[in-house]
Design a protein around this nucleic acid. Structure first.
Length: 105
DNA sequence: GCCATGGCTAGTA
DNA sequence: GCCATGGCTAGTA
């Protein structure tokens, strides 16, 4: 596995229940600010294999970005189960729920 | 070539 | 809505 991929997987694993990160934010934390789409690709291909909390990643506007209805429903359900309020249109208030990792350690 | 982005702008009101 | 972006992989030679 490539270092960037390992970083992304580790970062996504670190998102606590009830919090979310954005694709671009994960990319920045992994050291590649413009690699948001690569984060998408990793989620797409490695979520199951690595047991990633894939439902805790949303786009920069706080929206569920998945395409198909079944996955959207599943993501909404998982998030609400963790106490995240998902509005009817599938958006989340990032001001409340975005996870900001501390870099002090 | 993939991809579940993101930042910008044009167009509307 | 458009389109530049980028790490990775499948597919070809």
């Amino acid at each position: 596995m490539q270092p960037f991929t390992a970083m992304v997987i580790s970062i996504i694993h670190s998102i606590p229940p009830g919090k979310v990160m954005t694709y671009g934010q994960v990319a920045r934390e992994a050291g590649s600010p413009r690699a948001a789409r690569q984060v998408v690709r990793i989620l797409h291909s490695s979520s199951e294999k690595h047991g990633l909390p894939w439902h805790r990643v949303v786009n920069v506007r706080g929206e569920i970005a998945l395409q198909d209805d079944e996955s959207r429903f599943l993501q909404k359900m998982y998030l609400e189960h963790e106490g995240v309020q998902v509005h009817e249109d599938g958006h989340i208030d990032l001001k409340v729920y975005q996870y900001i990792p501390s870099h002090t350690g």
